Amino acid sequence: MPRSNRSRSQRGRGDGHEELDVDRLTAGWRRTETRGGREWNVQPVSAAQALKTYTCPGCGGDVEPGVAHLVAWRADGVLGDAADLASRRHWHVHCWKIGVR
């Protein structure tokens, strides 16, 4: 059995740490960018969070599971936040940097 570096009195104690709020942590990475006179919300997706295959609108190629990428959606849409979120797209990081051709 492997040796533990924690004393027996500390095992099983919460030590007063609060639970991590993943939404709060990931929201800090979201940023707003302006492209072509429009504002966009851009949020990175880590390789560990990338679980599905998406089609990149920049190159038309697949964004495979396990590949870090970006999600972008309009920040200034006239139809409201729900419509903007529904129209979000997953981009390769490189494709987003060079922009839409």
Rank of each mutant, 00 (worst) to 15 (best):
P2C: 08
P2R: 14
P2M: 07
S4Q: 09
N5D: 15
N5L: 07
R6M: 08
R6K: 14
S9V: 06
Q10T: 14
Q10R: 14
Q10F: 06
Q10A: 15
R13T: 15
G14P: 00
D15I: 06
H17L: 11
H17E: 13
H17F: 11
E18Y: 12
E18R: 14
E19A: 12
E19M: 09
E19Y: 09
R24T: 15
R24M: 12
T26R: 15
G28E: 14
W29Y: 12
W29Q: 15
W29M: 11
R31F: 01
T32H: 07
T34D: 09
T34P: 02
T34N: 04
R35S: 08
G36F: 02
G36V: 01
E39W: 04
W40S: 01
N41C: 08
N41A: 10
V42T: 09
V42R: 02
V42W: 01
Q43M: 13
Q43I: 08
P44F: 02
P44E: 04
S46Y: 10
S46P: 04
A47C: 04
A48F: 05
Q49F: 10
Q49E: 15
A50Q: 10
T53N: 10
T53V: 07
Y54Q: 04
Y54E: 05
T55N: 07
P57F: 01
P57L: 01
P57A: 02
P57C: 03
G58Y: 00
C59E: 02
C59G: 03
G60I: 03
G61F: 00
V63E: 00
V63Y: 00
E64K: 10
G66N: 03
V67H: 10
H69C: 13
V71K: 01
V71S: 03
A72C: 05
R74C: 06
R74T: 03
R74W: 04
A75T: 05
A75F: 00
A75G: 12
D76C: 06
G80T: 05
D81M: 10
D81F: 07
A83C: 14
S87Q: 15
R89Y: 04
R89K: 14
W91Y: 05
C95V: 00
C95S: 09
W96E: 00
I98H: 15
I98E: 11
G99M: 05
R101S: 10
R101C: 03
